[in-house]
Amino acid sequence: MATITLDNIKKSFGKTDVIHGVSIDIEDGEFIVIVGPSGCGKSTLLRMVAGLETITGGEVQIGGTRVNETEPMDRDIAMVFQNYALYPHMSVFDNMAYGLKIAKTPKSEIAERVAVAAKMLQLEPYLTRRPRELSGGQRQRVAMGRAIVRKPKAFLFDEPLSNLDAKLRVQMRLEIKALQRELGITALYVTHDQVEAMTLADRMIVMNAGVADQIGAPLEVYANPLTEFVAGFIGSPATNFLPAAALPGTPASAARVGIRPEHAWLSTEGEARLTGTAVYSEALGAETLVHLRLPDGEMFTIRQDGARAQPAEHQTCHVAWDTDQQMEFDEAGRRI
């Protein structure tokens, strides 16, 4: 258990700059999710904390000590990989015990710690099996177990659930969160899935092309995105963006305006701020997503209650929203 501090961390591979300076102070026991689209540098950032990637600039501290030059094994962290990286020739027990064995932990203590972790993760019946004799979800649990038994200062997760099917993903997400709460170990969790980020994070780092666009609690980031990128990435379905010029009454400095689908509604002609043609509707039961084509050809999505009437195809629709809820961004994509 420890605090982690990133101080203006940078990474270049040769001449390509991948991480452009990320800073965050992570509190002891906090669950931090690094979220962003594929290729934005999430894994690289995490791997620098793990010590698997050298740090080009800035400083990483774990528990208040600089660890830039420390080998991964001496950082006292545990990592869960996307493809689990279990040792294929070792039993589940040995997989979990390997780190402890290397640390020369007494045998009785190893057995005890593995037993506790196995119980926590419902892996007790499988301790003698090889990884290939397990299902994806069980392998995932073994990878978790391997991290838990070490009692590390921090857990590092790199997209640990992306190889599981949707249902299992939801279940494991809850389990990971519960485990982390119970153990109180600081966690850094990488994902490209914004739902995972929203549900797991105490605070999240939204990454955009090597830059931390915004760091904050999930609901705060949702309610108050600092950049156009964050507004578009967090929230599902994605925010609609319109050129500010198309909307009367927006500040002169605004270049684009974002309206979340859940904040807009089909309105009467009188209160309409926009007009478009219904293209299709996705009825999901509790809610319906209405997709409109605007006169300039752009799409606009409205999320409405499932009980409300859906517009027919090609029907002209009027759209309104509360101007308090619209988000205005300047030319550089920053929130005004």
Binding site: A50, G51, L52, E71, P72, M73, I77, A78, M79, F81, A85, L86, Y87, Y98, G99, I102, A103, R146, R150
Partner: peptide, 9 residues
């Protein structure tokens, strides 16, 4: 990498 994190030289 997993082995490295686990402490294996």
């Amino acid at each position: 990498e997993a082995a490295r994190v686990d402490g294996a030289r």
